[in-house]
Design a protein around this nucleic acid. Structure first.
Length: 874
RNA sequence: GGGCGCGUAGCUCAGCGGGAGAGCACCCGCCUUACAAGCGGGAGGUCGCUGGUUCGAAACCAGCCGCGCCCACCA
């Protein structure tokens, strides 16, 4: 510390967040504090940011996610780790394409008017102009990311990673192309994976329709009457007696005149409806599967916009127009046997545009997930990856263990194009990174038109950002990542996929050691934030009004692992108040000559008050470290909040005041040093959560270069001091009792009262009498002292007060009686326990001892309160 | 339909086998020379219900009631 120039500047009188935040951030970046050095010999600590969408701007969920990450990273940096927090963005296939298409629509053109190449160029142009606003906003929050390593899922390096892993999976037979029923969005005109589909309970109509005539007629129920045009069978359960005679025969499909077979399949539930199901293999995943077993043809009767294409009067109708039309036609024929409305059933919707998904038979690319998902499950099962909190493992397993093959092709233009080429003679060639296409269009070769699911490239994020597939210094150093911090909502979407691809690409090494999950930000009533409800918090608005530190502290304070985080403006104001408290405490310290220069006196040289606060500090350091290690950020905040506010500000500073102002220069000097030390350490501990205000205060206090690179506190056991803590506990109790008396009696705080303190010596705190008098505002007894009230405090301590004419005797009597009742109840409880032989026999010695102590204390209280009551004038 | 989780002070939540806690809100009194974005004091809870295990249960077990979330190809 000696050779660092003294940067101490006078602290402004009032805390104004805006004055201290922005300039510090730019200074930190300029100083290179956030840059990681892959060649250093420090232990590595790496977090890659969950890449926000390039279309996005900072919302309060990001603010929570980033606050947690920044806190973890900043602490590790202070602990001497080589820390890398890597920023970047996701190209967000559908979302981004939709944004630009909407823009085009406003200009009256479609992407097809532009053509693929021009459209993609246009998206890049949009990205350059208005994409990534979130990155600038991250600076306002104070995110200590390494800007020199910023990545984008579509940049050159990451695209190479995509090609490389695609080729590898393809060659391993883990990527295949097949005609399957997939989730199709008729508005976005693309396939969707299972997780891009949201299910909601929708109101529909269950119509029972009679197929066939006379003896061979059979009733089926459906919510999607329009699909009957594509029916190619009716299925019943093999053991269903009602229909056994019909299996193998045919019925006439109404409206079409086609005859379709009746088949028997185990999958049919005989208890549902009539027990007979219409089979539409081209438009229902179940029916497709059953159809495969029975060799049923799949008849596609709708196009990609869900418009009916079947010949006949329904051709050209949208699915929602065709449905009632067909029901009406069937009713006219007397074939509608029953109609149940409303009928609630789950319907899938596109997670992007909320359009009802249409199951559609089409040729798509899939990842065979079984072996990958098993490995992803095992990595958690065998403890190589830890989920925090651990209860999420159950949900994780149930998902990875039951995953369907992953549809990765999207009929979009914005994204990584599938690197497969088709030749003139039916050749199919997968082209890896740095490889040339097998031929050109002149030779009859063409590349697959589709792009990859956005999550395909994000699944590579933990290693593609570090240079994979090349063997880079960053990759060697920072893979696996230390922690993945993210919301539980994308545990399946993203975390499971990073696990699958990380394990696959990196020879069985999982992408991170720990997944620290947090919840969703909610409003102060625990309600989900939504625009329509008007309870959405804009974090930048809070940064503006309360400061980035207050915003961060509010979020961190609610960040219980895996749990949702309620926030409100009032709480943010409370966090701002806390920062202000720190500001004022430091200001007071500086005004009173607090210092961090020179050796901290050893415990033997210090007063009990100084030893007490230092002892408390050691406990806090240990506690905070444990809480940090357990990702208990909310507890870290709570611990430090109370230590700072209660112990340091409310007690230590008040206790220090008389010492600092007193005549004992040596004692005052020691306290100045201790005060400087305590604030120094406290600011270090708080820095991960509230970096700006702590930086401002700490540099003013210590003259140090920056808290960002200052050392993280470690506990010093030589300052642990149970005796001092016990002494101060008694002192606090005495002062509190006197204050309570004064408040009860309506004595003005400024009103001096003469008092005699008894029993301090026996309690070992005789030396603290001046302090007690100062805090409780008690004058020494004069010549005419007359005790008119006696306070029974604790142990053997009593306070006799001369309150002639100032107190209400009746009120005092009531108060004491109440206290005595409490003590008596306490004593009775303890006695009951101790009188129970089973308790004494079975309870641990420490517990029994504690109860004995409580009983003794209660009995002493009863005695002293009795004496005090007796001493009251009649 | 399957799975997970939650019901503790007015609100939001900690506590998860041995004296019911915090923040905010509330009441009383204070501009006490770091801070009214503050200080001191206080009130407020059969810890969802019912049983069980235990010397001892807010905590562990079972059932019930009430919420919430995730997953899901029963038409």
């Amino acid at each position: 510390m000696t050779d660092i120039p003294d940067q101490r500047a006078p602290l402004a009188a009032a805390y104004q967040p805006a004055d201290v935040e922005q300039s510090h951030y730019e200074r930190w970046v300029a100083a290179g504090y956030f840059g990681a050095d892959a060649e250093s010999d420090r232990p590595p600590f790496c977090i890659v940011i969950p890449p926000p969408n390039v279309t996005g701007s900072l919302h309060v969920g990001h603010a929570l996610d980033h606050t947690i990450q920044d806190a973890l990273v900043r602490r590790r940096r202070m602990q001497g780790f080589e820390t890398l927090w890597l920023p970047g963005m996701d190209h967000a296939g559908i979302a981004t394409q939709n944004v630009v298409e909407r823009q085009l629509a406003a200009e009256g053109v479609s992407r097809h008017d532009l053509g693929r190449e021009t459209f993609v160029e246009r998206v890049w142009q949009w990205k350059a102009e208005s994409g990534g606003t979130i990155l600038g906003q991250m600076r306002r929050l104070g995110d200590s990311v390494d800007w020199s390593r910023e990545r984008f899922t579509m940049d050159e390096g990451l695209s190479r990673a995509v090609l490389t892993i695609f080729k590898r999976l393809y060659d391993d037979g883990l990527i295949y192309r097949a005609e399957r029923i997939i989730n199709w969005c008729p508005r976005c005109l693309t396939a969707l994976s299972d997780i891009e589909v949201e299910h909601t309970e929708d109101e529909g109509e269950l119509v029972s329709i009679r197929y066939g005539e006379g003896e061979t007629s059979i009733v089926v129920a459906t919510t999607r009457a329009e699909t009957m045009l594509g029916d190619t069978a009716v299925a019943v359960h093999p053991s269903d007696e009602r229909y056994r005679h019909l299996v193998g025969r045919e019925v006439e499909l109404p409206l079409t005149g086609r005859r379709i077979p009746i088949v028997a399949d185990e999958h049919v539930d005989p208890a549902f409806g009539s027990g007979a199901v219409k089979m539409t293999p081209a438009h229902d995943p179940n029916d497709f599967e059953i159809g495969q077993r029975h060799g049923l043809p799949a008849l596609t009767i709708m196009d990609e916009r869900a418009v009916v294409t079947a010949h006949g009067p329904y051709q050209g109708l949208d699915r929602y127009e065709a449905r009632p039309a067909i029901v009406a036609a069937l009713r006219a024929q007397g074939r509608v046997v029953a109609q149940r409305r409303p009928y609630l059933h789950a319907v899938g919707h596109c997670s992007r545009c909320k359009t009802a998904v249409e199951p559609r038979l089409s040729l798509q690319w899939f990842v065979k997930v079984e072996p990958l998902a098993r490995a992803a499950g095992d990595a958690v099962r065998d403890g190589r990856v830890r989920l925090e909190p651990a209860d999420f493992a159950k949900r994780y397993f149930s998902w990875v263990d039951n995953m369907h093959d992953w549809c990765i092709s999207r009929q979009l233009w914005w994204g990584h194009r599938i690197p497969v080429w088709y030749g003139p003679d039916g050749e199919v060639v997968c082209v890896g990174a740095d490889e040339e296409p097998p031929g050109d269009s002149a030779g009859g070769w063409r590349q697959d038109e589709d792009v990859l699911d956005t999550w395909f490239s994000s699944a590579l994020w933990p290693f593609s950002t570090l240079g994979w597939p090349d063997d880079t210094a960053d990759l060697r150093r920072f893979y696996p990542n230390s922690v993945m911090v993210t919301g539980y909502d994308i545990l399946f979407f993203w975390v499971a996929r990073m696990m699958m691809f990380g394990l696959y690409a990196m020879d069985g090494v999982p992408p991170f050691d720990v997944v620290a999950l947090h919840g969703m930000v909610r409003d102060q009533y625990g309600k989900k934030m939504s625009k329509s409800f008007g309870n959405v918090v804009d974090p930048l608005d809070w940064v503006e009004r309360f400061g980035a530190d207050a915003t961060r502290f509010t979020l961190a304070r609610g960040a219980n692992p895996g749990a949702d985080v309620p926030v409100s403006e009032e709480w943010c104001a409370g966090s701002r108040n806390f920062c202000n408290k720190l500001w004022n405490a430091t200001r007071f310290a500086l005004l009173n000559g607090a210092t961090t220069a020179g050796e901290l006196p050893s415990a033997e040289e210090l007063s009990a008050v100084d030893r007490w606060v230092l002892s408390r500090l050691q406990h806090i350091i240990v506690e905070v470290d444990e809480q940090f290690d357990a990702y208990e950020l909310a507890k870290v905040c709570d611990t430090l909040y109370h230590f700072a506010w209660d112990d340091v500000c409310d007690w230590y500073l008040e206790l220090a005041k008389p010492v600092l102002a007193g005549g004992d220069a040596a004692a005052a000097q020691a306290t100045r040093r201790v005060l400087g030390h305590v604030l120094d350490q406290l600011l270090r501990l708080l820095h991960p959560m509230i970096p700006f205000v702590t930086e401002e205060l700490w540099t003013a206090l210590t003259g140090g270069e920056s808290l960002v690179v200052a050392a993280w506190p470690g506990p010093d056991k030589s300052y642990l001091d149970d005796a001092a803590e016990a002494e101060l506990a008694v002192l606090q109790r005495v002062v509190t009792e006197v204050r309570r008396f004064r408040s009860d009696q309506g004595l003005k705080p400024g009103q001096r009262v003469a008092a005699r303190l008894t029993g301090l010596g026996r309690a070992g705190i005789g030396g603290h009498e001046p302090l007690i008098r100062a805090l409780a505002r008690l004058d020494p007894p004069g010549d005419d002292f007359a005790a008119t009230a006696t306070l029974a405090v604790t142990g053997h301590i009593g306070v006799e007060l001369d309150t002639r004419g100032a107190i209400d005797i009746a009120a005092e009597r009531t108060r004491l009686a109440k206290d005595r009742a409490v003590a008596e109840r306490e004593a009775a409880q303890c006695r009951a326990k101790l009188d129970n032989p089973a308790f004494v026999r079975n309870a641990p010695e420490a517990v029994v001892g504690k109860i004995r102590q409580r009983l003794a204390a209660a009995e002493a209280d009863i005695t002293r309160i009795g004496a005090a009551l007796d001493a009251l004038p009649a």
